[in-house]
């Protein structure tokens, strides 16, 4: 967020912890001049009905994401490792719950 050539406020992604014990979840984005204002705006835009107990805001430009083209090479290796799932193993009924 070094220089702001444009007059438009930067974009922030907003994450809200719905209740204690849960992780933060992405709820949307908003524009704000700085992090403090982004938190204030996020409170008004995304938690008007007590939807959260904690808010994170992250500059949208700081997020690195997989691209949709990555889908196959990136996630395919997991597909043939079925032995990672408990259901891969047959355990006799006599043994009971395992």
């Amino acid at each position: 967020m070094s220089e702001h050539k444009r007059k438009e406020w930067p974009l922030w992604e907003v994450f809200v912890r719905g209740q204690h014990g849960l992780s933060h979840r992405h709820v949307g984005s908003l524009h704000a001049p700085d992090a403090e204002m982004a938190i204030n705006n996020a409170r008004d835009v995304y938690t008007r009905r007590s939807e959260g107990v904690s808010i994170w805001v992250v500059p949208a430009e700081a997020i690195t994401a997989t691209s949709s083209g990555d889908k196959e090479p990136l996630f395919e290796p997991a597909n043939d490792k079925v032995y990672r799932h408990p259901t891969f193993y047959d355990i006799p009924d006599e043994i009971g719950h395992m």
Binding site: M1, S2, E3, H4, K7, W9, P33, D34, M37
Partner: peptide, 17 residues
């Protein structure tokens, strides 16, 4: 108001650097 807040944010960021 929009410009003022942006100027403030820029100033804060510059001070941090």
């Amino acid at each position: 108001f929009r410009e003022g807040l942006m100027a403030h944010a820029d100033k804060q960021a510059a001070r941090k650097i």
